[in-house]
Computed example of a mutant assay.
Amino acid sequence: MYTLDLNTQDFLTHYWQKKPLVIRQAFPNFEDIITSNELAGLACESEISSRVVVTTKNDWEIHQGPFEDYTQFGDKNWQLLVQALNHWYPDATPFIDAFRFIPDWRFDDLMVSFATKGGGVGAHIDNYDVFIVQGEGKRQWTVGNKGNYAKKNNSITTPLIEGFDPIIDVVLEKGDMLYIPPGFPHQGQTLTTAMSYSIGFRAPSQQELFSEIADNLIDNNTGLTRFTSHDEPALAGIISQTHQQGMVDLLQDVLQDPNHYQALLGKVLSQNRFELDICEPEEAYTHQDLLDALTQGASLHRIGGLKVLRVENDISPRLFINGEQIDCSKIEKDNLDSVMSTLTQTLQFDNETSKTLIKTPNISPILLTLLNKGYYYLAL
């Protein structure tokens, strides 16, 4: 349904995280994923992250959702933004699938914008990669080069900047796409009432990783080796170069041990910033329940936004899902790689694939765990 007309290998080689790119008709015959009324309805829900940005004379006002009424904003100069649509709207899945040439662990969310004429956000810089796909209507986008830019109104907390000289100045129409890597300033301006789709990809910072490493060591009561030295400085008030290096080496010992970093990375990278639509069944599914459902034609679906990851060359046969480890050690070695690949790559199993999967020895307990945690669901 959503076929991306892009040479992905050429894109990854020459543009990904390097420079911005405009792709005309990236999605030929594109149809909007959701209507503006449906989007407005989702923004009424308290568990869904939404906001309205109102453009004023020389600034922007941000109103946080949920929203019951939009008449207060008038008929121009504002836009509604709904985060993580893919968590709450299953019809977004085929669109997300078109971007899986980028690893799932990087995927942040699908943000959707409904904007009236004149609506937009000022010049700003993001610390993540974003693809912006235009739906109905037209929006003008300008993108500048990386550089040092003055913060808007000298605020140290805002992502907004005072301005930039554009290297891209383009009007996006239905099906067009703009890619913007981290650090490139950009600004969008709505020319006609419009729908836009922003697919964001994010990587952890050093600060985030070190924080998670520390928490992991504390939680597991590991990393208890203390620094020892073979020489001491002549002066008591000196931290010698050899002592400095020895303590750094102590940290590196932890960071280079797969027993520490593989589980840590699997946990961190399989989590989401935004709430998932997890709905555990009232009564736990049994193996017979699962067989009966599949016999009746059910299919097995992953909930929107859920990340199912495995670590290459992992020391243990396991999957990482929403920050949890799912043990796969009981699956026979001859089937292990195939099963884990299937679970990580497939978002929706049709009925025949589901019935084939459940025939794999020792797979049923894993599927039941995923169903009973609300990570997967059965659809008829």
Rank of each mutant, 00 (worst) to 15 (best):
T116L: 02
V133W: 01
K117P: 15
P66V: 10
F101R: 01
F101P: 11
H124M: 10
P103R: 13
V53T: 07
N77G: 00
D69R: 12
F114A: 08
H63Q: 07
V112N: 02
Q64G: 04
D104H: 07
Q134S: 03
W78M: 12
R100K: 11
D126E: 08
V52Y: 00
V121Y: 11
P103H: 05
D109K: 09
L80W: 02
P66R: 04
V112F: 02
H63M: 13
A123K: 02
A123D: 06
E136P: 01
N127K: 03
P103K: 14
L110F: 09
Q134M: 07
A123G: 10
A84T: 04
T56V: 12
L110Q: 09
Q72H: 10
I102F: 11
T116I: 11
P90L: 08
K117W: 14
L80C: 08
E136R: 04
W88P: 03
N77A: 04
Y70N: 10
L80G: 01
H124D: 14
Q134H: 07
P94E: 00
H124P: 10
W105P: 02
A98D: 06
Q72N: 00
D59R: 07
L80V: 13
P103V: 10
N58P: 05
I132D: 02
F95L: 05
N86H: 14
W105Y: 03
V130E: 04
V82S: 05
D69W: 13
L85H: 05
N86D: 08
A115P: 06
I132R: 06
E61R: 12
G120N: 10
G74H: 11
F73V: 09
I125V: 15
A115K: 06
K76N: 13
G65I: 02
P90W: 08
W88A: 04
I96G: 05
W88V: 10
E68A: 15
S113G: 14
D104F: 14
D129F: 03
D91I: 07
Q83T: 11
D108S: 05
H87I: 04
D104Q: 08
A92N: 07
H124R: 00
W60H: 03
T71L: 06
D104N: 15
K117D: 13
D126S: 14
F131E: 01
D126H: 11
F67W: 03
V133M: 07
